[in-house]
Design a protein around this nucleic acid. Structure first.
Lengths: 132, 132
DNA sequence: TGAGTAATACCACAACTGTAATACTACAGG
DNA sequence: CCTGTAGTATTACAGTTGTGGTATTACTCA
């Protein structure tokens, strides 16, 4: 596991912009972010810079523009951040966490069915999880 | 909903110490934290101070000691942080989140059963969710 | 070829975090 | 009464974050 860089909210927003399109110039990221909040383009550039220094992204140069690309995948970040919350806040109690989730938000019947299917899978071992 | 103060990891650890015993002196919190990491007592005092300034905790004075108490409940923090992750990182996709959870960690059969029960509850509307 | 313009680089700044040394204060025991 | 000591307050400092102004650079088009 790549040693899981911790990301702040804003940083995650930037990463999302990159994840959503694989590669993006500063301007593109800026546009993406602008849908949510109003930051100067220079700010975005600085933030991307810092993310690069932390190893979360890279860039290549295309003409005079920088084209950024994520180095950590969305899946990795999801994994580590979720694990973080599950462990530190729920003491690893997965059912409790799921309970919280189901209790506090609208979940469509279709989604419930989906979750049930997931559980069935786990139970029958259909999708074998590598024996530890 | 009390406007959900954001907490860092260390801060959550402090809060956990308080949550676990309802009230605690600086020394007690320090002892609790010492199980995990090695911080000076003065550091703990400073951190508790800052948490108080942010409104996450209060204290009363007992003799020359401060007895701290959490103002935000563990449940509230769980709620808001989980919502945070669910929304910002999973785009609100609860099944995806649960999938991640089940895929990445050991879940006992008992826990699976528990989760199934939760879902059944939701489905039958035992705990009625207000029709949207 | 010169000027406008679009990009990035560089620098600044305040707030917050992690961490602790040091100073101050008040009680307990002699 | 004086002093050790246990406890809190004050101050410090470096690193990170959020934010943006200003300087540079390098195309593009007349």
């Amino acid at each position: 596991m790549p040693e899981s860089i911790p990301l702040t909210d804003l940083q995650i927003e930037l990463m999302r912009a990159l994840w959503s399109k694989d590669e993006a110039t500063v301007v593109e990221v800026h546009q993406e972010i602008s849908k949510q909040r109003d930051l100067a383009q220079g700010t975005i550039a600085t933030l991307l810079n810092r993310l690069e220094k932390k190893g979360a992204i890279t860039h290549r140069t295309e003409g005079r523009q920088f084209v950024y690309r994520a180095l950590v995948s969305e899946a990795e970040v999801r994994r580590s951040m979720l694990a973080q919350v599950a462990d530190r806040l729920f003491g690893g109690d997965v059912p409790l966490l799921i309970h919280q989730l189901l209790a506090e938000r609208e979940v469509s019947p279709g989604d419930l069915a989906e979750v049930k299917a997931l559980i069935a899978e786990r139970e029958t071992g259909t999708k074998r999880k590598p024996a530890k």
